[in-house]
């Protein structure tokens, strides 16, 4: 039993399809609020940044409504922040999709198009290989992307650790090459990541995605999972 309902603010940036994220919140009993007010996003307990669409217009939208500053404030204060798909990519330095457009830059890595000859976009369920200490479990996650981060958090760690004590971990998947399925930042001594960047869509990844969302929010097992655990 939860002591109280957790609250979460979703930044409405105009391009993202928010219905699936809202449906996930409804299923997990989380009180979700869609807002265009940066102050609400900055203050909320939890804030996911969903994203579909293209890097350039989405970044422009964030800046126009001042949401970039709210997200930056959350990141610097270590308040729980999640980036989903394009939301993850926007928290990186820049993207090949929109050369010259700066990202939010929380992660000093570049987003690039998938290398190799497989059909793009990558569309469907890919197998997750959790890194050491990752909040992800092995399983299947739903992806819909043509761009990705290829480098692993170890690189970022070296550049970042001077500014903030903590560690980056990540999980990987394969699509013609190894790419980052998640990048997570754990502040020193914290069991949960304050930053959780998912290249996949937790809101579309079935029970696996719902379980991840619950862990990130510090919630217990879902009723479906409890039934499963009991049945074992």
């Amino acid at each position: 039993m939860e002591a109280r309902t957790k609250t979460l603010a979703i930044a409405a940036t105009g391009t993202a399809n928010l219905a699936s994220v809202l449906a996930l919140c409804a299923r997990t009993g989380v009180e979700a609020l869609i807002t265009t007010d940066p102050a609400v996003v900055a203050e909320a307990e939890y804030a996911p940044l969903p994203g579909v669409g293209a890097f350039g217009p989405a970044m422009a939208n964030l800046r126009t409504c001042g949401m970039d500053m709210a997200l930056k404030a959350r990141w610097l204060q270590g308040k729980p922040l999640m980036g989903i798909c394009l939301g993850m990519q926007m928290m990186c330095q820049e993207s090949e999709e929109a050369p010259g457009v700066p990202g939010l830059g929380f992660i000093p890595l570049r987003v690039q198009k998938f290398r190799g000859s497989l059909p793009l976009p990558q569309l469907g369920w890919n197998s997750i290989v959790p890194g050491n200490g990752s909040i992800l479990e092995s399983g299947w996650a739903y992806f819909a992307n043509s761009f990705r981060v290829a480098e692993m958090p170890a690189t970022a760690q070296a550049e970042f650790s001077a500014a903030k004590p903590g560690r980056f971990v990540g999980s990987q998947a394969q699509y013609g090459e190894t790419f980052a399925a998640s990048i997570e930042f754990f502040p020193e001594g914290s069991a949960l990541p304050t930053l959780l960047l998912c290249q996949f869509h937790p809101e579309l990844s079935g029970n696996w995605g719902e379980a991840l969302f619950r862990r990130w929010m510090g919630l217990g097992l879902s009723s479906a999972q409890q039934r499963q655990e009991k049945a074992r």
């Binding site: 497989l118 469907g124 890919n126 992806f143 998947a173 394969q174 013609g176």
Partner: peptide
């Protein structure tokens, strides 16, 4: 190599 599953 792709870890992508075929979808139904």
């Amino acid at each position: 190599m792709s870890g992508l599953a075929k979808r139904i």
